[in-house]
Nucleic acid binder design. Structure first.
Lengths: 133, 133
DNA sequence: CCAAAACACCGATTGCCAGTCGGTCTTTTT
DNA sequence: AAAAAGACCGACTGGCAATCGGTGTTTTGG
């Protein structure tokens, strides 16, 4: 994926989440589900969809003369990228420091998160394959 | 701490890191260490220090008629807050989802990070106190 | 086959915020 | 008292999300 700066506004996030939830969507539908509620015009939703597409977060495919947008990655991948980018600007947030910051955050926010995290790690380890050590 | 939006520019981060590194600092010194290298004027550094202070990331104390700035929190606390805020805007990044996103990120970026994270979790668990389970 | 509807695309505007300083007023220092 | 150091105020720039209007093109209905 692109390595350039990724910034998302509130509307962009709302639209992205709608697409994630629905699996795919076109401007009209997203406007009905998201824009109408928030008071955004159809054009604004279209622009947002387009920007999200330019940012590489949504793929689009023509169906008739309209576009149908689909997510290019999972929520997790995007959230992970967000985390990475918000920390990569700090020299002290590089590599190992990132993990340390996160573990620090978890233990600070709610110690029980550590257990949760640990379980998730086990889960991922198993998915990836044998622990070579 | 404040719950309002926290956004940091590149200069702000550079200045913050300098203060973290030095433990404290005044405009002149920060300018010499950071501003001069980046080509920022002393005033710009002062403004940045002030904005960082307004954002609650730096405390200041008058020494003679000048200010000496000191960090109000640890790097970890700030990085944690950054992580939290970048994810809290997503409804799917709430609570447990946050951990899932992070574990997913780690396993995706580099599986060995999982081991690292796990070790850190153990470390934090021990620090906090007994494992109740 | 033509007109109306749907829609993509371009461009303009607004608002917010970091970055950047100049200028001025106040406090120290000499 | 004059000079030097520095805080504080205000102004300007640039980038980007949000927001649409307008225009041109593609579909579709009659």
């Amino acid at each position: 994926m692109s390595c350039s700066e990724l910034k998302l506004g509130d509307l962009e996030i709302a639209v992205l989440e709608d697409i994630w939830h629905a699996g795919q969507g076109e401007a009209r539908g997203v406007h009905a589900r998201v824009g109408a509620v928030r008071g955004n015009s159809l054009q604004t939703i279209q622009s947002t969809l387009e920007r999200l597409h330019r940012k590489g977060l949504l793929a689009r495919e023509r169906v008739s003369h309209a576009f149908v947008y689909t997510p290019t990655g999972s929520r997790e991948a995007v959230l992970a990228r967000l985390i990475e980018e918000s920390l990569s600007r700090f020299s002290s947030g590089q590599e190992g420091g990132l993990m340390a910051a996160f573990a620090g955050y978890a233990s600070q926010a709610d110690p029980s998160l550590l257990d949760e995290l640990e379980a998730l790690i086990e889960h991922h380890k198993r998915r990836i394959g044998g622990d070579p050590s």
